[in-house]
Amino acid sequence: MKPQPPASGGAPSATEPASPPSVTAQLPLSLRPPPDQRLETFVAAPEGVLDQLCALAHGTHADWLYLAGPAASGKTHLLLGVCAAAREAGRRAAYLPLAAAAGRLREALDAMEGHDLLALDGVESIIGRRDDEVALFDAHNRARASGTALVYAARQAPDALAPGLPDLHSRLSQCTRIVLEPLDDDGRREVLRTRALRRGWTLEDAALDWLLRRVGRDLAGLTALLDRLDQASLAAQRRVTVPFLRQVLGAVAP
């Protein structure tokens, strides 16, 4: 849902402080997922998970889902992917990073009323904030009553999060739980190789090994590098080889 621009009315007076910008004007409620982050591009998903998410996106899966896993395990990828799948099926879907709405979560969730699917990322970021926990609990109940599908993601399972609101813990625990693990090096190679192919070029094994050894294993950072390499390769009209990587990334790689 795109936020509406504020009505014109002149600048606030010197004695009347300007109202803070609405949280809905700052959050990607209807963020268009990047093309790399689709259900079909997810590597090494636990058995049956993609089918569950696809069914939820199309409205044929009754159970809500809770994705639990550490950083770099692919939670955000799957949330953005299920939103993309829902929109392709003609349904209204919105993704919300809860950390960006912490302290004003009720306003953000109210702005998402009327969607067919909500993907709520980073539940751990609002735990311990009483008002936000109550807002999430209320939104959960409204979604259940209206038939809106919910997909949660957090670094920990509900029991480990231990929200201060017992009823919220109960609601989160009722969701079907999916546990994700970070990719190993083979999985990282497959992700990078596939995303390079989507950009129209091949990332060979020697170049992949060099990137993992010299640049690091953080998948988000490695994926971001692909755009830089794509532009540099096009500009130089060269293949992405180890010598080319040394030339382009020498300043960031030891």
Rank of each mutant, 00 (worst) to 15 (best):
residue 20 P to T: 05
residue 69 G to C: 12
residue 201 W to N: 01
residue 116 D to C: 02
residue 158 P to M: 00
residue 174 Q to P: 10
residue 85 A to P: 15
residue 174 Q to A: 13
residue 208 L to M: 06
residue 203 L to Q: 08
residue 218 D to I: 03
residue 178 I to H: 08
residue 170 S to K: 02
residue 172 L to N: 14
residue 16 E to T: 09
residue 59 G to T: 08
residue 209 D to L: 03
residue 30 S to H: 13
residue 27 L to I: 02
residue 11 A to C: 09
residue 113 E to M: 10
residue 6 P to K: 13
residue 119 A to K: 04
residue 213 R to N: 11
residue 53 L to V: 07
residue 103 G to V: 03
residue 189 R to Q: 03
residue 191 V to S: 01
residue 235 A to W: 14
residue 14 A to M: 15
residue 105 L to Y: 01
residue 118 L to S: 09
residue 128 G to K: 10
residue 46 P to Q: 02
residue 117 L to K: 07
residue 173 S to D: 11
residue 149 A to Y: 04
residue 48 G to E: 00
residue 171 R to S: 07
residue 205 D to F: 01
residue 159 D to F: 12
residue 29 L to E: 08
residue 246 R to T: 08
residue 72 A to H: 15
residue 218 D to M: 06
residue 47 E to G: 10
residue 241 T to I: 12
residue 147 G to A: 05
residue 120 L to A: 12
residue 123 V to A: 11
residue 138 D to F: 09
residue 192 L to C: 01
residue 59 G to H: 03
residue 152 Y to R: 09
residue 241 T to V: 13
residue 108 A to Q: 10
residue 236 A to G: 08
residue 99 A to K: 15
residue 3 P to K: 13
residue 99 A to V: 15
residue 46 P to A: 01
residue 224 A to H: 14
residue 107 E to G: 13
residue 147 G to E: 09
residue 176 T to H: 14
residue 53 L to E: 15
residue 156 Q to T: 01
residue 137 F to N: 04
residue 223 T to E: 04
residue 181 E to F: 09
residue 34 P to I: 01
residue 39 L to N: 13
residue 197 L to N: 09
residue 109 L to I: 12
residue 109 L to S: 10
residue 199 R to H: 07
residue 103 G to Y: 04
residue 161 L to E: 06
residue 40 E to L: 07
residue 78 L to K: 06
residue 234 L to C: 00
residue 86 A to W: 03
residue 220 A to N: 10
residue 171 R to A: 05
residue 254 P to W: 00
residue 216 G to L: 08
residue 111 A to Y: 05
residue 188 R to E: 00
residue 77 H to Q: 07
residue 110 D to I: 13
residue 79 L to N: 10
residue 13 S to C: 13
residue 130 R to I: 13
residue 216 G to A: 11
residue 217 R to M: 00
residue 84 A to P: 15
residue 165 L to H: 03
residue 75 K to H: 04
residue 89 A to L: 07
residue 83 C to A: 14
residue 68 A to C: 15
residue 132 D to K: 11
residue 108 A to L: 12
residue 176 T to F: 12
residue 148 T to A: 02
residue 74 G to Y: 15
residue 3 P to Q: 12
residue 36 D to G: 00
residue 118 L to W: 02
residue 59 G to A: 09
residue 105 L to A: 00
residue 208 L to Q: 07
residue 69 G to L: 14
residue 25 A to T: 03
residue 31 L to H: 10
residue 144 R to D: 02
residue 68 A to M: 11
residue 141 N to W: 00
residue 245 L to Q: 11
residue 82 V to F: 14
residue 132 D to N: 07
residue 141 N to E: 00
residue 62 A to N: 13
